[in-house]
Every structure is written in C-alpha cells, then in structure tokens.
Computed example of a mutant assay.
Amino acid sequence: MIRVNLDVVLSERKMTSKELAQRIGITPANLSILKTGKARGIRFETLDKICRALNCQPGDILEYQGG
C-alpha cells in the first residue's frame, strides 16, 4: 500500500492545498483525491510539478507501507 503524506509536507511548507493546486495547474478537487489516497495513479509530470512547488523529493510525499 502507498501512503500519501502530502498534508504533512504542505504543513511543513506552510502552503494550502488551494495554493498548491493553483501552482501546479490542477483542480483543488483532483488534489484532494490525491491527498486522501483515493487516486488510482499519478502522472510523473504531476509528481514533478508537486515536488518542484514544494521543493521536496517524491519519497517525501509517497511512502510504501508493506503488508
């Protein structure tokens, strides 16, 4: 299972979800789907934009939880 830690990174960067959505060019609704872990996948292009906007690595926002 992949856990999405986007809320944690947003909080650390003092950025709102709405602001991130605007910066990366997606709707707040689509960002919410990603944040809650309900997305079936994510494009590398979107992941790249998120990492650039938050100055982070993919591993900062996505975590594998084995089981």
Rank of each mutant, 00 (worst) to 15 (best):
G41M: 04
D7P: 03
G66N: 09
R13F: 02
Q22D: 10
D60P: 01
R52P: 03
I26D: 04
V8H: 09
L47Y: 09
Q65E: 14
V9G: 00
E45G: 05
Q22F: 04
R40D: 14
L34R: 04
A53C: 09
N5G: 00
Q65M: 04
Q65V: 15
N30Y: 14
K35M: 13
N5D: 11
I61E: 01
N30A: 12
A29F: 10
G66S: 10
N30I: 02
P58T: 05
K18G: 03
E63K: 12
K49E: 06
E12P: 00
G41S: 15
I33S: 08
T36H: 13
K18S: 12
V9K: 00
L6M: 05
A53M: 01
A29I: 13
R13L: 03
N55H: 13
L10P: 00
R23C: 02
T27V: 06
A39E: 08
V8E: 13
L31I: 07
R52V: 13
V4P: 01
K49S: 11
S11Q: 05
G41T: 05
A53I: 05
L62V: 09
I42R: 10
T46G: 04
K49A: 15
L47C: 04
L47A: 15
L10R: 03
K38S: 11
R13T: 04
R40Q: 12
S17D: 07
M15K: 13
Q57T: 11
N30S: 14
G67H: 07
L20K: 04
K49F: 03
I42P: 07
T46E: 05
Q57K: 12
S11F: 00
Y64H: 11
K38H: 12
S32R: 14
V8A: 06
A53G: 07
D60Q: 05
K49I: 00
R43K: 15
L54T: 00
R13W: 01
G37W: 07
L47N: 08
G37E: 06
L47M: 15
Q22V: 09
E45A: 15
I26H: 03
R13P: 00
S32K: 06
I42K: 07
F44H: 07
R52L: 06
E63N: 06
N30H: 15
G67R: 10
Y64M: 07
A53N: 04
S17T: 08
I24F: 10
I26M: 13
V9A: 00
R52A: 12
Y64N: 02
S11G: 03
A39H: 12
R52W: 02
G37K: 10
V8S: 03
E19K: 13
R23V: 00
K38P: 02
R40T: 14
I2P: 14
I33M: 11
A53R: 08
I24G: 07
